[in-house]
Structure formats: structure tokens, C-alpha cells
């Protein structure tokens, strides 16, 4: 059972949309230990409810379409069932709800999102978003000690 689960998600081939995915990949190098699990995924899918249910604390990292590019936004996530017709992706709230319904556990969760500047095809972040990725990694790096993991 991981005490801290970090899920970074996005499309690594769509410019700044990659920021969550890349943050998770970077954090994998920085944060290691038996109590930490880090997943870099393209999108949120229902099977993530399983690892979420086994964590004490979950951090989601994603790009945002609106907002000042590069600004790191932080907000708590609470469980809420998804009312849309699932086809390819889900939301952090819906996954927390699924985790509670299916596995009886809904851990405390936070979403860090970084508004992007460009979502065009191709690899590489725009400068402001790349800078924010570094800052966000610093924030996440201190999480295990603040959570006493």
C-alpha cells in the first residue's frame, strides 16, 4: 500500500498538455521509497480507482486549458460521481467517488494544475510552463516530509 500516490497525466505529444505527465516522470527520479507510488498516464481511466483506494494521500497533476500560463493552481478534490457517458477519460473527483464505491476508501486528494500556453502537436513545453514544472516538482519533493512519510 502506497501512502502517497502521485498521478501526472496528459498527452506528451501535445505541447503543454504534457506538463502533468512530465512532472510525474521527473518526480519518479526525485522521490523513491516503498510508501510512494508515481504514475505517468495519458488520461484518467476507471482502473486508477484501485491504486487510489490503496493510498493515504493522492496528488493529481494536470495541465489546464484556461488561466495564466505557468501559474500553479492548487485545489482540494472531493469525490463526485461522473454524470457524463464515459468513453476515454475520467476526472479526479469521479475516480475518488469510484474508489469509495468500489473499494471503500476515498483518500484526501489535491489537484495541481498548470495552465498551458500551447497545445499544438509536438513535444516540448513553452518556457513559462517548463519553469512551473520545476517549481511544482520542488513543492512535491517536500510532500513526503510534510506528510511524515
Amino acid at each position: 500500500m502506497s501512502r502517497l500516490l502521485i498521478i501526472g497525466y496528459g498527452n506528451p505529444l501535445r505541447g503543454d498538455d504534457a506538463v502533468g505527465y512530465l512532472a510525474a516522470e521527473r518526480l519518479r527520479e526525485l522521490l523513491t521509497g516503498p510508501d510512494i507510488e508515481i504514475l505517468a498516464v495519458h488520461q484518467l481511466t476507471p482502473e486508477l480507482a484501485d491504486p487510489i483506494s490503496r493510498a493515504e494521500r493522492v496528488i493529481f497533476i494536470d495541465a489546464a486549458v484556461t488561466g495564466e500560463p505557468g501559474v500553479i493552481l492548487e485545489r482540494p478534490i472531493t469525490p463526485a460521481p461522473d454524470s457524463g457517458g464515459y468513453t476515454h477519460h475520467s476526472t479526479p473527483s469521479a475516480l475518488l467517488a469510484a474508489s469509495a464505491t468500489l473499494f471503500g476508501s476515498s483518500p484526501e486528494a489535491t489537484l495541481y494544475s498548470i495552465p498551458g500556453e500551447s497545445f499544438e502537436f509536438g513535444e516540448g513545453l513553452t518556457p513559462r510552463v517548463a519553469e512551473s514544472l520545476e517549481s511544482l516538482c520542488t513543492v512535491c519533493f517536500s510532500l513526503p516530509s510534510s506528510l511524515q512519510i
Binding site: P46, P81, D82, S83, G84, G85, Y86, A94, A97, A98, T101, L102
Partner: peptide, 8 residues
């Protein structure tokens, strides 16, 4: 009528 409805 989706996977989350099935979950419920």
C-alpha cells in the same frame, strides 16, 4: 448509463 452508473 455509463461505467459510473454500473458502479452504483
Amino acid at each position: 448509463r455509463n461505467i459510473f452508473g454500473v458502479m452504483q
